[in-house]
Design a protein around this nucleic acid. Structure first.
Length: 600
DNA sequence: ATTGAGAGCGCG
DNA sequence: AAAGCGCGCTCTCAAT
């Protein structure tokens, strides 16, 4: 059973809809203040909360201290179903693009990103659709128009029915149902993580910055340590005080004049050079990066009150991985993770999946030998790369790692290319799977993940370049451009199946974790309530996610049981995706009060 | 003033 | 040839 959520006048309309998409009764209209008890009523019946965009509703629920267990995010589901090869022949996919295809993600509320958008343009196509004309502030559809307008293109009940039908008519309803449930659960988790925030000690962050850069400078000034390094750079280059080390052009000119012999400023290029400017320059670049990307400005903007409220974009990457916007949540540098400290009486459970992608590949290809190489033996967690060495396929862990990465990314040079034939001999099924994905991409075809997320088609310019290579007068460069583009798209599809399926594993993992954590209930010890907002103030909850890694903030008394649940969730995710195929997804798990201490 | 590119580095 | 996948952010500089 679904509860479809929509605006209804000044309140929220909640409408029951069956699992076949049939409305069962009229919407009941609820004021926000009554939300908690209304939600509790439906939660008892295990409904799936169905809405156009999780960020348009769930933050309001959470602000009332209300958590929901299951959801169906129509925007995210629509995108999957439109593209998936499993639902390609359904009415939803065969119809033209609709208003649902033009929806853009809603940023979480209250954050800098939301504030930066004066008026978020929810429906880019709305003006054309409603032909609002030139008068009037091109804004919004009047409230309640859904009722007056018989053809509301964004009616959630109509869309839900269409989606449920597409799932039923697809070639594998089970997989798509799982994918959409996981995707929506991810949306819930992302909203909850934004709501709770990652505990962030501003004072520790400031310490890190001051130690590295000197005290916070006045606006417009350079921090002391950076200024000192700038002087050293100028001295080493015999350059005037006007030389600005932040300007690549300036710097390259000065370096050429001084005969340093480098045309780029890339770290790995500079490291090969021998010149007095290199050392201070490398240090300058590193500190400059810290200062600009995660310095005091970042702290003021993103973690002003003891919590970093990251803004995830669920489904933001074509492969199904999450993206982030604004705070750079997915690029949190290791050197500032020391500022992530749990609340008094609380602790972190940090877990990451070891070698997730090669394990996913082994399972996807049902390559028993590769899976066996990664299997946990005698209860001890096995390093998959070491396991590959143990099969005799390659002679060092480094070769195993580089070779596997090359196989999954499409490496054609160096060690990875050298090792590939040996991997192909030892694990023909796994290697064949990525090779086939690459060839499909080179032909301009679509590839699909385990649960049914399909890759996009190459853009129109792709076909144009391919076509031009077949012209009578096609030059050698046109042909080589086409060839290079072909290979490039092959590398993309090669990686898509692995990265995308790994993202599905991670979604299932998160979905399972959040359900298990909630089931643990409130902290029964008389420990500190912590500073987390309701409904998580006495409960362990997810605070961070990074592709194959999670952080749970938990009352200290619950840390061990949380760790168990996180491990159990990983096993569950493996079963959900791959059934009884014997593949392990071992985790490294740490219980720690500082995120920086967890990395192993 | 705003916008877009290129460069570079952070994360997995 | 630091290759080979996926991203976001911040800076400078030139173009609008």
């Amino acid at each position: 059973m679904h509860t479809v959520v929509s605006r209804d006048g000044s309140g929220i309309g909640l409408r029951p809809v069956s699992d076949t998409g049939v409305p069962e009764g009229e919407p009941r209209v609820v004021e926000t203040s009554a939300l908690a008890q209304e939600v509790a009523r439906d939660e008892a019946a295990h409904v799936r909360w169905t809405w156009d965009d999780t960020n348009g509703w769930y933050p309001e629920f959470l602000a009332e201290g209300v958590r929901v267990d299951r959801a169906h995010d129509l925007r995210l589901a629509h995108a999957v179903l439109r593209a998936s090869t499993l639902s390609a022949h359904t009415a939803l996919a065969e119809a033209g693009a609709t208003a649902w295809d033009r929806l853009t993600p809603i940023p979480p509320p209250g954050g800098p990103t939301a504030a930066a958008l004066v008026r978020p343009d929810r429906h880019p196509g709305a003006e054309a659709l409603f032909d609002l004309g030139e008068s009037g502030p091109a804004a919004t559809v009047p409230a309640g128009s859904a009722a007056d307008d018989p053809v509301d293109p964004l009616d959630p009940v109509t869309e839900l029915a269409a989606q449920l039908l597409a799932i039923k008519d697809s070639t594998d309803p089970g997989r798509l149902r799982l994918l959409l449930a996981a995707e929506s659960a991810g949306a819930l988790a992302a909203a909850e993580m934004h709501h709770a925030g990652l505990p962030w000690r501003g004072d520790v962050h400031d310490e890190i910055l001051t130690e590295a850069l000197g005290p916070r400078p006045r606006p417009g000034a350079r921090p002391a340590k950076l200024e000192a390094l700038a002087q050293k750079i100028r001295a080493a280059l015999d350059a005037p005080p006007t030389l600005n080390p932040d300007s690549h052009q300036d710097l390259l000119r000065a370096m050429e004049y001084a005969g340093v012999g480098s045309r780029s400023l890339r770290k790995w290029e500079l490291e090969k050079l021998d010149h007095p400017v290199i050392a201070p320059l490398l240090e300058y670049k590193s500190l400059y990066r810290l200062y600009t990307a995660n310095g005091w400005n970042w702290l003021d903007t993103w973690a002003p009150d003891g919590r970093f409220r990251m803004e995830y974009v669920v489904g933001g990457v074509v492969t199904g991985r999450w993206a982030s916007t604004g705070g750079g949540a997915l690029q949190l540098p290791h050197n500032v993770r020391r500022a992530v400290v749990s609340d008094p009486g609380w602790t972190f459970v940090v877990a990451d999946a070891a070698q997730l992608e090669p394990r996913v590949l082994a399972a996807l290809a049902r390559d028993e030998r590769m899976a066996a190489a990664g299997r946990t033996k005698d209860g001890a967690s096995t390093d998959m790369y070491a396991g590959i060495v143990a099969t005799g396929a390659v002679d060092s862990r480094e070769h195993a790692k580089v070779g596997m990465l090359g196989a999954m990314y499409g490496g054609t040079t160096g060690v990875s290319a050298q090792v590939l034939p040996r991997l192909a001999r030892a694990f023909p099924q796994a290697i064949e799977l990525v090779e086939r994905a690459a060839r499909a991409g080179e032909r301009g075809e679509v590839v699909t993940t385990r649960l049914g997320r399909s890759s996009p088609l190459p853009g129109e310019s792709w076909a144009a370049v391919q076509g031009s290579a077949f012209d009578e007068d096609a030059g050698a460069d046109a042909q080589s451009r086409a060839r290079s583009q072909t290979r490039s798209w092959g590398r993309f599809t090669r990686n898509f199946v692995v990265q995308g399926t790994a993202a599905e594993w991670a979604l299932c993992w998160i979905a399972s974790i959040r359900r298990r954590l909630w089931a643990l209930g409130e902290d029964a010890s008389d420990g500190a309530p912590g500073l987390a907002p309701a409904p998580f103030d006495r409960r362990p909850h997810l605070v961070f996610f990074l592709h194959d890694e999670i952080v749970v903030h938990a009352p200290a008394a619950l840390a061990d049981v949380v760790a168990q649940e996180v491990r159990a969730a990983a096993e569950e995710a493996g079963r959900l995706l791959f059934g009884d195929f014997p593949v392990d997804f071992p985790l490294s798990v740490a219980v720690t009060e500082s995120y920086a201490d967890a990395k192993g």
